[in-house]
């Protein structure tokens, strides 16, 4: 049985899915791929949006897509460092 993902891991998965989809994904497939409940998804989505990790963009048909910001890419780049730091200092 896989253990429950912690907050940082969920954020990493969330952002990684967007990156792996050419940095542009619709909310519904993102919800499905993150394996989160609708409620949790919405909470993380709002947190990442307000934190400046992701932003919404609209295409010509006015369809909403979610994309990473520079901060989002930075989080992905630093994730291993962050996990290493937390593990080393047992935080």
């Amino acid at each position: 049985m896989s253990k429950k993902r912690d907050r940082l891991e969920v954020i990493y998965d969330f952002l990684k899915i967007i990156q792996d989809n050419h940095n542009s994904i619709k909310p519904t497939p993102l919800l499905r791929k993150t394996n989160l409940s609708s409620q949790s998804f919405l909470e993380y989505y709002k947190e990442l949006l307000s934190g400046g990790f992701i932003r919404d963009i609209y295409n010509k048909q006015n369809k909403k897509f979610i994309t990473l910001t520079d901060k989002g890419f930075k989080y992905l780049g630093k994730y291993k460092t962050i996990i290493g730091f937390i593990g080393e200092f047992e935080l």
């Binding site: 940082l8 901060k71 930075k74 989080y75 630093k78 937390i86 200092f89 935080l91």
Partner: peptide, 17 residues
């Protein structure tokens, strides 16, 4: 030195540290 990784995560343990 830990400012950047804290700003990215707002991790509680990191904040106390």
């Amino acid at each position: 030195k830990t400012r950047e990784i804290y700003n990215l995560t707002k991790h509680k343990g990191m904040q106390f540290f």
